[in-house]
Simulated assay, not measured.
Amino acid sequence: MDIGRRGFLKLGGAGAAYALLPGAAAAPATGRPIIDVHMHAYPATMQLPAPVTNPISGFKSPIRTGADHLAACIAEMKKHNVVKGVVSGGDGDRLQAAIDWHNRDPDRFVAGAGIRGSDDTPLPPIDVLRKAFADGRLKVLGEVTSQYAGLSLSDPKFDPYLALAEAFDVPVALHTGTMPAGTSFDPCCTSARARFGNPELVEEALNRHPKLRLNIMHGGWPYLDDTIAMLMLYPNVNIDTGAIDWLLPRPAFHAYLRTFVDSGFSKRIMFGSDHMYWPDAIGLAIEGIESAAFLTEAQKQDILHDNAVRFYKL
């Protein structure tokens, strides 16, 4: 999830969908290896909004720069045995920030190209991505935040990029669902609209690019039926649990997750934190999965690790 390039968009507030009981505890370390497929990097010198206070836990972080953020994320990953993270660039240089994380710890991080396609954040030159995929510096196309530009992935402007992903067998990770409250009023995102988060809008792109591997981020929330329809028809589609596993109230998240599991898609769900500016959200997100009493241990293993190994070919 993107929370704006020109400042911090508040999460929550009166009537907001994103809320959890105050003081929610992060998951204790279980020893289970975990893969987080939805992480965010920021340029090392970038000044983060202050104070960086987690809207759920209330924890006020001392983090002030992108470099601080990286160090804190690595510490949280080690604490919770997160052995691999798929990371896309955040504000600023959306390509180099993720590459820098990979260079810092190449065994831990897989770098993705965050792209949008708006006037504010235009698509990078296709040759830049081709070279980065060819030499292995980037291994994921995403997070693609086309919704923030008022576009769907099926817009023809993305076709050259999806064709490139097919050619290099690079998975695509797409922001879907909704956005933080007030996004369309932020100067960076005046074209953003909720309707472009519906996963059904990617269908034409999938048919034009049948070899594409697509991760529907945020599990398509709140478009449950439409997301299930995409999973049913397109076996090359997976979902991740980013943001909804710690920002939604637990009962709402568990009800949403359980419907996917009961519908037979437990092998197509991948864990993601989407921690944004808050590294402690990694533990909160893990707890969202570990506390789901309806999941078997095998299903937790799939969601927290094994499904990502298969989908991302790790």
Results as ranks from 00 to 15, higher is better:
residue 145 T to Q: 09
residue 49 P to D: 05
residue 46 M to R: 13
residue 282 I to P: 08
residue 138 L to A: 14
residue 50 A to Q: 15
residue 98 A to N: 09
residue 108 R to N: 07
residue 23 G to I: 00
residue 248 L to H: 10
residue 140 V to F: 03
residue 173 A to H: 14
residue 296 T to S: 15
residue 228 I to F: 03
residue 147 Q to W: 00
residue 300 K to T: 02
residue 246 W to T: 06
residue 255 A to D: 11
residue 275 H to W: 02
residue 3 I to W: 05
residue 247 L to W: 10
residue 303 I to K: 06
residue 215 N to P: 08
residue 227 T to R: 05
residue 247 L to R: 10
residue 98 A to F: 06
residue 99 I to E: 10
residue 238 N to G: 01
residue 168 F to E: 10
residue 24 A to Y: 12
residue 59 F to G: 00
residue 166 E to R: 00
residue 57 S to F: 05
residue 284 L to W: 05
residue 70 L to V: 10
residue 27 A to H: 01
residue 104 R to Y: 12
residue 278 W to H: 12
residue 198 N to V: 00
residue 255 A to C: 06
residue 253 F to K: 06
residue 47 Q to V: 12
residue 235 P to K: 14
residue 32 R to H: 05
residue 144 V to M: 11
residue 272 G to P: 00
residue 139 K to N: 09
residue 187 P to G: 08
residue 145 T to R: 01
residue 126 I to M: 08
residue 96 Q to F: 03
residue 268 R to A: 08
residue 78 K to H: 13
residue 286 I to V: 13
residue 240 D to P: 07
residue 181 A to Q: 13
residue 48 L to I: 06
residue 298 A to W: 01
residue 273 S to W: 04
residue 212 L to Q: 07
residue 256 Y to D: 03
residue 77 M to V: 04
residue 189 C to E: 13
residue 287 E to C: 01
residue 254 H to K: 08
residue 128 V to C: 04
residue 42 Y to C: 10
residue 61 S to R: 04
residue 302 D to M: 08
residue 297 E to K: 12
residue 129 L to C: 00
residue 203 E to V: 13
residue 22 P to C: 08
